[in-house]
Design a binder for these strands. Structure first.
Lengths: 220, 220
DNA sequence: GAAGACACGTGATTC
DNA sequence: TGAATCACGTGTCTT
């Protein structure tokens, strides 16, 4: 309780026989634990740097922020990996002759930002892609070429929107995602998926009081 | 050097009337820093638990091992995602004559066989949503708390903008960045930098014909 | 000078 | 018994 400093000052000079052994033992023990603790700190710091090296988008060098950035990065990565896996599965099971694939690409011009609870893989279609209506001209005029949504956790969804790459597309894209009132944007990122395509990925969290409105549409 | 001075009883006669104020100030400062440091530790620990909840196979609860496990997990996840992405690209662009597809499937099987241990998120982690988010009913108009810009290449700049966390901040943030007419947004991402802060990072590319208009302002 | 981050040495606890 | 991990308060350094 009383945080009084134990003075490490030496009181030698009087006792000889076991006094010396006691003090030496104590001191040796102290230095051992000290160096051990130091090594422990170094180990953790190195691991932290190692982690930081793996995470792109490091915002602050701050120790806690490194872990925080790693957390959101891992979340995005997990979601992305899951989505890719499903995509692979879908592509593998569907033979997709060239004609069909071409049609598929053309058909994927959907720009529904209000894709609320509309994911019904009807007829056992395992695709998580929601089927939108006709693509109306976007806010910036860029056509959306792909929209995907996948549940990646309890009330958490991974959403990807791909559209043409034009100047000023990011803001309406973010606005569209944020306009989903029952979601909260947990993280989002924008990058290029081709010479003329940008893709924005988001992790959305359902507001807790709306959680029961959503359910999973399992693919298989 | 040896920081003594805990006894708040008497100071030497140098101070006339500052004796009480000096000790009070010192003590207040002490407790302030103490509680601040304590909060820092708590923050880091929470972030660490949050990270641990994301990593499926946690070997030891040890603090450094958590980061180590996270490191190897992120490495695996990155590799896995890259492989999946290549796979998707290959599947999408292949004309897929029957022979080719068969070969591809064989290759697929080999990959699956080689990847003996699979780590798929399974570790039923309890909901680590430590942050009780509150519905702040604010429209846009969140205050920007930090802006940074660094040149990271030839005509390429890394820009960070931090502001208050409100619903719907991402879109105006992107709009603001995109409104810089002489830049093109190469990539951008949005995440949280604190319980009440969001930070958006962007990589901007100067349009080539404007490149000579910009130069570096070195900070230190 | 106030605030924040970090490394340090140390007491407590666990295996 | 020691080795190892953690939380703590503190000094120092940078904003």
């Amino acid at each position: 309780m009383d945080g009084e400093g134990s003075p490490p000052s030496v009181e030698q000079g009087s006792g000889e026989q076991d006094d010396v052994s006691a003090t030496t033992r104590k001191r040796r023990d102290r230095s051992k634990t000290i160096v051990s603790e130091r090594k422990r700190r170094v180990r953790m710091k190195e691991k932290l740097y190692e982690l930081r090296a793996l995470v792109p988008n490091i915002t602050k060098m701050d120790k806690a922020s490194i872990i925080a950035d790693a957390v959101v990065y891992v979340k995005n990565l997990q979601a992305h990996a899951m989505k890719l896996k499903e995509e692979v599965a879908a592509l593998e099971t569907q033979p997709m002759s060239p004609a069909v694939r071409q049609q598929h690409q053309q058909q994927q011009q959907k720009q529904n930002a209000a894709a609320g609870r509309r994911q019904q893989g009807r007829g056992g279609a395992p695709s998580a892609d929601s089927d939108g209506e006709e693509g109306s001209p976007g806010p910036a005029g860029a056509r959306v070429t792909h929209v995907g949504a996948t549940q990646v956790g309890d009330g958490r969804f991974f959403v990807t929107v791909e559209c043409e790459r034009r100047d000023g597309v990011a803001a309406p894209l973010c606005a569209a995602v944020e306009s989903l009132a029952c979601f909260r944007v947990e993280s989002s990122s924008l990058g290029r998926s081709g010479p003329d395509r940008v893709v924005s990925t988001h992790v959305l969290m359902v507001h807790t009081h709306e959680k029961n409105k959503f359910f999973v549409v399992r693919s298989n």
